Computed example of a mutant assay.
Amino acid sequence: MAYHSTTTSIKNKVIPLEELHLSREVRVRINQLIEEFTYKDALNKLEIPVDNKILLYGHTGCGKTATASAIGFALNKKVITINLAGFVSSRLGETAKNLAEIFKKASSDKAIVFIDEFDFIGKLRDYDQVDSGEMKRLVNALIQQIDHLSDDTLLICATNHIEIIDTALLRRFQIRLTYELPSKEQLDTYYDDILSKFPESINTIDRHYGISYAEAKDITFQQIKGKVINLEKQRKHLVFTYGELTSKDYASLISKGTKDVLPGYKLIDLNINPSSQDNKTIQASAKKTRADTDQIEGVVFELSGAELVQTDKREQFNYKRVLETTTSGKEVWVYVDHNSF
């Protein structure tokens, strides 16, 4: 069955309701829903029903799924998520049975049932291979589960296409909330919120409008990642060499370096051409001993992040790069024997 159950918590990276970017109307109604469940006992004493069937509809990427998770977090309820497109079985009779089992479990756990792609049940009616009688039975089964939903259970459904959902199903929802594309002002607030978490050196981006929050987030992170990677490529790293970096590409860089000493290591011979018995190539390699008497003399020089990546590719079969401290106190990268750690 295509569903999963989660207990909403910080570990699940749920965005709290107060941090979600929602319209004022949606936020007010969701807060009221949460308060109704929080004070449900007081309402029940006066025989005032609690609204526990909610439909979220509108443009994709505008926060419907995040809202369901945030409600679960606020109410400390488990969220049982059903993706209806993947849940509907080719044998529709089994789908109705599976649906009943999920609602039974939700009732037992006083959980939230979140049905995503709720419009899929409307789309199924257009498929030639689906028996219309079976489809009606499935819709009726869903209506029956909704009608018998316990007061402790909350049903949240999400759809991008409310217009194709059976009107008999729509009537069951006490709350219907629209999720529209955010305005320029709302997107600017959203961009500002995301970018405030990053250093000023990388938090300026080309902003796009007329898109969903999800699309804005993707665009933001794509640009931020590009800036971070470029900075890392340019960032200078100190590298300690003791003669193992033999490429001519390093000669001029090493000549500008400073002499230093790496404590706790000794030099060993490394055969960098082990596949050939007749043409062995022996090269020095640093092996960690942690002995106070062992040390290696060498040179500390600079490589950019991009150059360091290329060096890793060149040396990965013979050496392992580790971070160490020289006797002068410099934190340096060192290419050492693979078996040192």
Rank of each mutant, 00 (worst) to 15 (best):
Asn98Gly: 12
Lys64Gly: 11
Phe118Ala: 07
Asn83Ile: 01
Thr67Ser: 14
Asp116Ile: 06
Gly58Leu: 02
Ser69Ile: 00
Ala68Arg: 06
Lys110Phe: 04
Ala70Met: 01
Lys78Ser: 12
Glu94Ile: 10
Lys97Asp: 13
Gly122Thr: 11
Ala66Met: 08
Ile112Val: 10
Leu92His: 08
Thr65Cys: 01
Lys53Ile: 10
Asn76Ser: 13
Lys78Thr: 15
Ala68Thr: 11
Ala66Pro: 05
Gly86Glu: 13
Lys78Trp: 12
Thr60Gly: 14
Lys64Asp: 09
Lys78Glu: 15
Gly122Ile: 00
Gly61Cys: 00
Asn98Met: 00
Ile115Asn: 02
Ile82Thr: 08
Lys104Gly: 14
Ala85Glu: 15
Val88Cys: 03
Ala111Pro: 02
Asp51Cys: 00
Phe87Thr: 07
Asp128Trp: 01
Lys64Gln: 10
Phe103Asn: 04
Leu75Tyr: 14
Thr65Pro: 03
Ser69Arg: 13
Asn83Val: 07
Thr65Tyr: 06
Thr60Leu: 00
Thr81Leu: 00
Tyr57Trp: 14
Phe114Val: 04
Lys105Thr: 14
Lys110Gln: 14
Cys62Lys: 03
Asp51Gln: 11
Val88Arg: 02
Asp128Pro: 01
Thr67Trp: 09
Asp128Arg: 04
Leu75Gln: 08
Phe120Lys: 13
Lys77Ser: 05
Cys62Tyr: 07
Gly58Ile: 05
Thr67Asp: 09
Glu47His: 14
Ser107Trp: 03
Pro49Ala: 09
Leu46Met: 13
Ala68Glu: 05
Gly86Lys: 06
